[in-house]
Amino acid sequence: MEYGVLVVVDRCIGCRACQVACHVWNGTEAESTEFSPDYTNPPDLTSNVWTVVRFVEMGEGDGLRWYFVKRQCMHCVEPACVAACPTGALHKDKDGIVLWDSKKCIGCRYCVEACPYGVPHFDPLDKTIRKCTFCADRVREGLEPACVAACPTDALIFGSLDEIRARAEEYRAKGHPVYGLEEGGGTSWIYVFPKETAPSDAGLPRLGPETPRERIDKGLLALAMAAVAGLAAWGVSRGKAAPAAQEVKVR
């Protein structure tokens, strides 16, 4: 069974309990020196900050208000990071969790460039990539992810991916923008946005349905075209030479 989480943006109050929970459970707290110790507003994910609550403005003038969008690894159905990783250090397990094997990571940072969500970060001390683990060490023991367990408003709902997708569909039918059902082949963390907001305002990339695999196929096609061009260039040059050479012989 694959796991999933539904992020119901409407219910998030921006308390950042999930951020703290993630640090506490994963022990990432001590090493993050770049930020204020109380984690007020780390600007972005890092190799030590695996989840961050983003504050997004909505409306204008008197109607101005904030809503809050938690970011972390989406555990994509078809992860670009896994496709990019040349050594298989990053991999997607049967339960849908995308993890890395530090022993195999060579530190090329291709996954960093490939992930549409800017999730993996290279840790110069550990010499490996680090990111949200979906709390595999919890969920595989029957517990919820630490961030989900910490959320005081049930803005994060943990379950099987099928169940989460079904719930997301329901919200969509009621007119909520939903992110993660199709984008880039779909994700395991699916977002339900308040009506009249757009996922792209919260920094989620507008991805078509093109999957990483399909994009790689295009890359291979380009490579094949380059091969043909190289061969052709040589062949044409060679062809040009032939008559001249024969003429020399005849004379």
Partner: peptide, 21 residues
Amino acid sequence: MTDSSKRDMGVKYAADRIAIE
């Protein structure tokens, strides 16, 4: 989050760790 609730959270997750074992 206050320091005390962070502390409570730390204890709670430590308990989870023990319970997993």
